[in-house]
């Protein structure tokens, strides 16, 4: 039906309807339309099945635990008792830490690359930094285990000396920890923040900069008071995209978080994240309730990232409209 609207302009007079339809089929327009339409519909179908599978296969767990699944912290496969709170906590804490490290570094670097560095150096550095985004996450995990964790063990006394009085940095430190996971995630999301934010900042019309400079603003004042606020929505969008990515990140986190389903205030303590527990326990899971609970974890993760991604798109799209 929609095919007729797209080809209507070059179909001949309505006097010969039968012939024109015949010709259209011969020329393949309907065929091309149907085939590509089917592919597009397939995408919807696959996504629909994905949601349905997550939903229906977590049925047992949802029926047994209800909303308590999200708010209890017992994870005991032997007793068939499952509460996701420790994993949700670990996911949120590591992502928050990643953002605390990643936002200042990423946005700072984006400002430098967009506003201050000569274009050629900026392009070259951006090229390099964007390559970082292509590095597979299992490789970040590898480096996390064998490079970052030993380094963190070295600098741990220093961190403890400065911040040890806060509840965030207490208790024994074995290297693998919420802290290590947050740092690895930060390294992974920084390229995203940089490359999107840089583009957004570059898109700020130069007359905004000039207006500020012409009033006597310094370079930094024009950047911070005028350019960055102008690009604010896009920068926020890049941060939300980075957040969505870090929430769903699996391998690198699994390898350094310590895999301990407990809720501890200290970042030095090992923890566990949603993605990590699914990755570690899925193949070993015996019993339908166990599998069902793990799939419900997948559903939670899915919902979480969908919401965050949706927010990100909203922000980036609004910028484009302005």
């Amino acid at each position: 039906m929609a095919a007729s609207t797209t080809v209507a302009s070059n179909t001949p007079r309505p006097a010969l309807p039968a012939r024109s339809v015949w010709r259209r089929i011969l020329s393949g327009d309907s065929l091309a339309y149907s085939v590509t339409f089917a592919a597009a519909a397939m995408i919807l179908l696959v996504t629909g099945i994905l949601v349905w599978e997550l939903y229906s296969n977590s049925q047992a767990s949802r029926a047994k635990f209800g909303w308590n699944f999200l708010f209890t912290s017992t994870w005991d496969p032997v007793a068939d008792q499952f509460g996701a709170l420790p994993f949700i906590y670990g996911t949120v804490v590591t992502s928050a830490l990643a953002l605390c490290i990643g936002i200042p570094l990423g946005v700072g670097a984006a400002i430098f690359l967009a506003e201050l560095a000569p274009p050629r150096i900026s392009d070259a550095l951006t090229f390099l930094i964007e390559l970082l985004a292509a590095v597979p996450s299992v490789i970040y995990g590898l480096l996390g285990i064998f490079v970052l964790v030993p380094i963190l063990r070295q600098v741990e006394p220093a961190i403890r000396a400065v911040l040890g009085w806060t509840p965030l940095f207490q208790g024994p430190f074995y290297g693998v920890s919420l802290f290590a996971a947050g740092v690895v995630l930060a390294v992974m999301i920084i390229p995203f923040i940089i490359s999107i934010s840089r583009e957004v900042i570059l898109a700020v019309p130069s007359d905004q900069r000039e207006a500020a400079l012409a009033l006597g603003a310094t370079r930094w004042e024009s950047t911070w008071d005028v350019v960055v606020p102008y690009a604010r929505n896009g920068i926020m969008g890049s941060i939300f995209l980075a957040l969505a990515r870090s929430l769903g990140e699996t391998m690198a986190v699994t390898m350094v978080i310590g895999n301990d389903p407990k809720i501890k205030a200290s970042l030095f303590a090992p923890g566990y994240s949603i993605a990590a527990v699914v990755a570690n326990e899925f193949t070993e899971a015996t019993g339908d309730m166990y599998i069902s609970a793990l799939i419900e974890l997948g559903l939670v993760l899915f919902a979480l990232t969908i919401v965050i991604n949706g927010l990100a798109r909203l922000l980036v799209a609004r910028r484009n409209m302005a």
Partner: peptide, 17 residues
């Protein structure tokens, strides 16, 4: 910045913040 405070400028396209 002293120069630009003393010598103000208005541009071809209006560019309010």
């Amino acid at each position: 910045s002293e120069v630009r405070r003393r010598v103000g400028m208005v541009f071809q396209r209006s560019n309010p913040f």
